[in-house]
């Protein structure tokens, strides 16, 4: 009887600890990753090729409109300024070749002159990506469904205009307080970039060649990089800006 009780007591602690540790490890190391799906961007877009290679500015694609709204992702109209494939001409050529315009693979394989002659890229990989964009989106008149790493839901109103005059240099004073909000390395550069995009967006995206996968939360649909409300609030509070509900919600 004594013996059993002893073993019971001992057995009472060990399994408990095993269970405790197991879920602790799982809960910290494994489970958080399960919340996210990895989704690739619809086509390979290299910022490096456009910025470094073609010497484009950020503002070439991401600019303010006259009414103060921000253009965000460029539309086909903007892209077509350089990727000068005439959709009508291309569609006619596709029809002539007897290809179903929704059969992208066939079009890409067919090497249609109206498309191929107007591709701007140098090497094969890039050309393939450009061709994919032209065939799947540009000539179809469909906008590319880019995935926004800084995705915010419809109930959030964000004004780029209100943040455009903020500089990284100014914000560097608050780097300690903002260590959970902004990637600390943003403040460590020798010379700060003119634009303040790095504060919230993927750091140095203009140098990026292969865009990273978009990590989508399986429950909420948010990006892993979606800035949560407390981050916005922290910075607003530090900068003496209002944190009223309607400052950011709609």
């Amino acid at each position: 009887m004594e013996e059993r009780r002893a073993s019971k007591r001992c057995g009472g602690v060990l399994p408990f600890i095993i269970g405790f540790l197991a879920t602790c490890v799982l809960g910290w190391a494994v489970i958080p990753g399960l919340f996210f799906d990895k989704v690739e961007q619809p086509v390979w877009f290299s910022h490096a090729v456009h910025v470094d290679g073609q010497g484009m500015d950020c503002e070439s694609c991401h600019y303010f409109r006259d009414d103060g709204s921000y253009a965000g992702f460029p539309t086909n109209e903007v892209c077509a300024e350089c990727h000068a494939v005439d959709p009508e001409e291309a569609m006619e050529a596709i029809a002539e070749a007897g290809i179903d315009p929704s059969d992208y693979d066939a079009i890409m394989k067919a090497e249609i002159g109206a498309i191929e002659d107007n591709l701007a890229s140098g090497d094969d990989d890039m050309m393939a990506a450009e061709r994919e964009y032209v065939v799947k989106y540009l000539i179809q008149g469909k906008e590319v469904p880019w995935l926004n790493y800084q995705f915010q839901p419809d109930n959030v109103y964000f004004s780029h205009a209100a943040h455009k005059d903020m500089t990284i240099e100014d914000m560097a004073e608050l780097k300690k307080e903002l260590s959970d909000v902004v990637d600390p390395s943003v403040f460590e550069a020798e010379e700060f970039p003119e634009q303040n995009c790095n504060l919230c967006h993927m750091k140095d995206i203009h140098l990026n060649d292969v865009p990273p996968a978009f990590q989508r939360n399986i429950l909420s649909g948010y990006s892993k990089m979606t800035m949560k409300m407390w981050k916005c609030e922290r910075c607003h509070a530090l900068k003496g800006q209002p944190n009223a509900c309607y400052t950011c919600h709609k």
Binding site: F20, T23, C24, L26, G27, I31
Partner: peptide, 8 residues
């Protein structure tokens, strides 16, 4: 108890 000590 353990899972409660994780963010899960």
């Amino acid at each position: 108890v353990g899972i409660l000590f994780t963010p899960t």
